[in-house]
Design a protein around this nucleic acid. Structure first.
Lengths: 346, 346
DNA sequence: CTGAAAGCGCTTACAG
DNA sequence: CTGAAAGCGCTTACAG
């Protein structure tokens, strides 16, 4: 990097008239262990400071076979949800002396494959991945190659792999119970077209809770095609309003924000005309006349556990398939006030 | 990464009965150059595929002194502004065959120093940095050490270093002119306590435009202490309203969002009671009854140019101090409607 | 056309 | 207490 060459351990040794081994021992805190004289140790340390020595981590890695690098593949690091997670991963990794390589797959399978390969070649010791739709085989293959791997946010329950995710079923169960308890009965869900398990769980949490409450006839799950979210959202909401839906639950943050924008355009008031529940915190939720009720994920826990599990895996191979499931929290605000109708759950 | 050791060039050579040099030549596309027979080359390539060879980039790096790694130090990658920039940097770097190491300094000088050292030790070939307050010496030192370096978003005009930033003076000039032209005269700015040049430029753009318009007596720049932004913002806005300010300009995105929240709490209507201008796009700007007028930065250009300049620097040392200054765009919305008063600028 | 050998900067048995 | 030497995986003059 530098033009004047960096000082190496060899330079230090030469200028002190000792061996590189001695220098290495001292600088790695193994002076005692090798019974190097306190005086010698101090001289080495002083010289290192003087010559502005800092170890070449590349060489250290090559020698030790450890890169202290982990790869993180999210779908899009410019998405606030993933950038928040990434930040926490970075901090936790740094505490454990790892550096993080980030990549964004854009929910694309080919990119996912390519980027994983790049990361592995860069020498990462393990991977944290947000898998995209259709990536199950890629993930399985990776497990087979014995690359330490942790899935985050989404996972494949039948693949034996580390994961750190929300209890998605419970999230929509909380939402649906809350709505029912507050007197809503014509509750609709807005989801998107996907095979991913986390969304299926969210749908199931809603459906099962509705069934338990006896609202079988009102089950209403709408799947939006993400290639044109705004106009599809518009049509869907129009249809739902015509069908006398009294509460809408959006299953992702992106859907929530889109939904709020559409309702604003349509001059539909929240909650007077329609109760509304969102997913994941967003600045826009709290700026509305009536702040939005939403599911809060313990992102910090999820991200930290992902790193912990990964590093465990890196350090000892035997603990396969460890996972962490985080508790969702329902943040109740004024977009879902009590209706006059009594809940059938009570 | 893998448990069964990765195949090395040595394994390949052994299993083909040739030297490692030959294998290296072929795999690096230098077969022709070394007049290696086409047949031999094909055998090597085939074997490499068979044995699932991929080069150990760490070793390559150590040997060649090239890591194809660049380091990016932003203040906080979970901030949407920086995560957007980071994403574009990542994409552009990847086009140029570089991988990016991201870090977040949290606007802290000590972290900045430490993280730069870590990145350099990791073998990055260059750095893209958002410098924090007080980091001028660190940056100068880095330049002196001849580490290829590009500052982004903010820079130090008297340090000879690459940079890619907004024309900050012009940004507030645009805002102030627009407000004046629309009949506002008691225009106040909300800034924060900092020595950084980009903020000074923004303040200067406002002040100079005000002076030109003859509004010298209304110059009103308020600096908030970021350790307690919400309550300071509250106090500041209260004071400004009492002083009959008719338009407020917030100089950063964070200040803008805080300001909007405060005004909401205070039940001050935008723009009926107060015109408002923000900085950098934000979802919340467009959700209000009256969407906010704001300065839009061409983030894509800024980020791409930063990478371009950095890679130029990495490849040939002679073009020092290259910089890119991006044009701001004023997105005019309904938070700054025309007042009845005539502008003195006309 | 191909091989033997040095060396990038480091750590770590192995000697003494 | 300290040093000489091997080796991590690769590339590249240098020979032949």
């Amino acid at each position: 990097m530098s033009n004047e060459k960096r000082t190496s351990i060899k330079d230090l040794a030469a200028s002190l008239g000792v061996s590189t081994a001695l220098v290495s021992f001292v600088l790695n805190g193994k002076a005692k262990q090798h019974r190097i004289s306190e005086e010698m140790a101090q001289r080495v340390i002083k010289k290192a400071k003087e010559m502005n020595y800092s170890p070449n981590l590349v060489a250290k890695n090559l020698r030790g076979g450890k890169s202290q690098l982990i790869g993180v593949l999210v779908t899009d690091i410019s998405n606030p949800f993933y950038s928040t997670i990434s930040r926490i991963i970075e901090d936790r990794a740094s505490e454990l002396d790892y550096t993080v390589l980030f990549s964004s797959s854009d929910e694309d399978l080919e990119s996912t494959k390519r980027l994983i390969r790049v990361l592995v070649n860069k020498g990462v010791e393990g991977l944290i991945v947000v898998p995209c739709d259709g990536s199950k085989e890629v993930i399985e293959e990776l497990c087979h190659d014995e690359v330490p791997l942790v899935l985050v946010d989404r996972h494949f329950p039948d693949v034996k792999v580390g994961y750190s995710v929300l209890d998605n079923f419970k999230a929509t169960e909380l939402i649906t119970r809350h709505l029912i308890e507050n007197g809503y009965s014509r509750i609709s869900v807005i989801s998107y077209e996907t095979e991913m398990n986390h969304i299926k769980e969210r749908v199931a949490g809603y459906e099962e809770t509705m069934r338990k409450a006896g609202f079988t006839e009102y089950l209403n799950v709408n799947r939006i095609n993400l290639s044109n979210p705004r106009s599809e959202m518009h049509d869907t909401l129009k249809r739902l309003l015509k069908a006398k839906t009294d509460a809408v639950v959006c299953l992702t943050n992106m859907l929530s924000v889109n939904g709020i924008y559409c309702l604003k355009e349509m001059k539909v008031r929240i909650p007077e005309d329609l109760a509304f529940v969102g997913f994941n915190r967003s600045d826009v939720f709290n700026l509305l006349e009536n702040p939005i009720t939403y599911i809060k994920q313990p992102l910090e826990r999820i991200a930290i556990e992902a790193v912990n599990i990964l590093v465990d895996k890196i350090n000892n191979d035997n603990t396969r398939g460890k996972g962490f499931i985080a508790e969702p929290e329902l943040v109740i605000q004024s977009s879902t006030p009590k209706k006059k109708v009594l809940s059938r759950l009570d």
